[in-house]
Simulated scan of single mutants.
Amino acid sequence: MTAHHRTSHVARGFAGALAAAILVCGAAAAGPALADPAALPTSATDAIAQMVDLSRQAEALNQESLTAQTELDAALGVQHEADGKLAAATAVADAARAEVRKFQPMIDRAAVAAYTGARTDRMFAVLSSNSPQQLLDKMSTLDVLSQQTAASVREFKKAADVATAAESAARAAADTARAATTAAETFRAEVDRKRQDLGVATTQVVEAWGALSAHDKSTLAGSPFPPGFDRDSLLAGLVPGSGTSALAAALTRVGDPYVWGATGPDQFDCSGLVQWAFKQVGKNVPRTSSAQAGFGTPVAKSDLQPGDVVLFYPEISHVGIYAGNGMMVHASTFGVPVAVAPIDTTPYHSARRY
């Protein structure tokens, strides 16, 4: 195939890929910037550049999808907790209502007696007694009945108050559970949408990559290490510690493929590599690049040390581990294995020290 025909074939592949990217990403106002559909590749260099741009858009969607999944997991946790509280509150309310029902017959009898004019006071005992002994017996009986009735009324009121409070708590728990379910359903829909967007975008990236020649694919992949970079010397000079040890772990994965959503042990996306590397030294860091940007402590670019986490792009859609001398190890993008590269080739955002 001539260079002209190869370029035309690549251009056709990218035309479809770019059109799909517009359909996918254009719906998300907060999504990454779009490639210009009119700027179809006219050379292998342009094709690779647009391939990288499409891949970055897909990577940003990947991170958004992961963030949405994290939010869904949190929402499901809240929903589970709310459902548990609702079940507990309902059980308390049921028990309180059962306690009220236990006292209800006696309260009902007292109410009926009062309504029908039953005389249960001491004056009635005096008037209706035929002897002092009968009077004493009646008064004693009335005292006992009065005490029992008063105690029953007190217990009934106490049980009724508990039931009212329990039912109020159950209603509040039900409202909370409904809100938690609604939030979880909202996040679930967002996750599904992000996954669909990512699926279309990654399919187009793979198709565009397939349109590249073997030479162009090799050019895109590049070298795992920049000229003059000596991994062995770097590793020998690292001071033991969580950051530098995580860097050492990440350097052992150089050459492994980039895969959206992968967290190792032999394929990674950008935040997956960072998470995996720190996990090897006992640190549990967040899954997404945006969440990793809030972990640890901030570090100025001028104070970067090997093992610091470096973050890129305004939306923080990419992340790597600083390797010293302006270099980082990162899982770059589709078609490019885990590699060491200069940090200045990617729009710098910030850095954190774990």
Rank of each mutant, 00 (worst) to 15 (best):
residue 183 A to K: 07
residue 126 V to A: 10
residue 89 A to F: 01
residue 181 T to N: 12
residue 184 A to G: 01
residue 143 D to K: 15
residue 105 P to S: 06
residue 141 T to N: 10
residue 115 Y to V: 12
residue 123 M to Q: 13
residue 138 K to L: 10
residue 75 A to N: 02
residue 185 E to D: 15
residue 184 A to P: 00
residue 113 A to C: 04
residue 95 A to T: 15
residue 145 L to Q: 15
residue 154 R to H: 15
residue 80 H to C: 08
residue 191 V to K: 00
residue 121 D to Q: 07
residue 161 D to M: 03
residue 136 L to C: 03
residue 187 F to K: 11
residue 175 D to T: 06
residue 120 T to P: 06
residue 102 K to I: 10
residue 137 D to P: 06
residue 118 A to M: 14
residue 191 V to S: 00
residue 155 E to T: 12
residue 187 F to D: 05
residue 196 Q to C: 04
residue 143 D to E: 15
residue 90 T to D: 10
residue 134 Q to H: 07
residue 202 T to P: 02
residue 199 G to I: 02
residue 86 L to Y: 03
residue 151 A to F: 08
residue 118 A to N: 08
residue 158 K to M: 06
residue 73 D to M: 02
residue 162 V to Y: 01
residue 187 F to L: 07
residue 91 A to K: 09
residue 135 L to G: 00
residue 81 E to W: 02
residue 132 P to H: 01
residue 157 K to R: 12
residue 87 A to S: 14
residue 152 S to G: 15
residue 110 A to N: 08
residue 139 M to S: 13
residue 125 A to W: 00
residue 105 P to C: 03
residue 109 R to M: 08
residue 118 A to Q: 15
residue 91 A to L: 08
residue 97 R to S: 07
residue 118 A to I: 14
residue 85 K to C: 03
residue 166 A to Q: 00
residue 97 R to W: 04
residue 85 K to M: 06
residue 135 L to E: 04
residue 94 D to T: 15
residue 112 V to I: 09
residue 102 K to R: 13
residue 122 R to T: 10
residue 167 E to W: 01
residue 100 V to N: 04
residue 96 A to N: 04
residue 156 F to I: 02
residue 189 A to Q: 11
residue 188 R to W: 03
residue 73 D to S: 08
residue 102 K to M: 09
residue 106 M to I: 08
residue 146 S to R: 13
residue 189 A to I: 02
residue 110 A to F: 05
residue 148 Q to W: 11
residue 86 L to R: 13
residue 116 T to N: 04
residue 100 V to T: 10
residue 199 G to L: 04
residue 76 L to Y: 01
residue 110 A to M: 10
residue 97 R to D: 12
residue 186 T to Q: 14
residue 117 G to W: 01
residue 133 Q to E: 13
residue 172 A to W: 00
residue 123 M to A: 13
residue 78 V to Q: 14
residue 182 T to K: 12
residue 183 A to F: 00
residue 89 A to R: 00
residue 140 S to W: 05
residue 126 V to Y: 11
residue 183 A to Y: 01
residue 121 D to E: 14
residue 157 K to H: 09
residue 198 L to R: 06
residue 82 A to L: 02
residue 188 R to S: 14
residue 123 M to H: 10
residue 192 D to H: 03
residue 77 G to F: 03
residue 92 V to H: 12
residue 157 K to W: 04
residue 115 Y to M: 15
residue 149 T to G: 11
residue 73 D to Q: 06
residue 166 A to W: 00
residue 137 D to T: 14
residue 187 F to A: 09
residue 184 A to W: 00
residue 102 K to T: 14
residue 141 T to D: 10
residue 192 D to P: 04
residue 95 A to S: 15
residue 183 A to L: 09
residue 137 D to S: 14
residue 181 T to A: 14
residue 128 S to H: 10
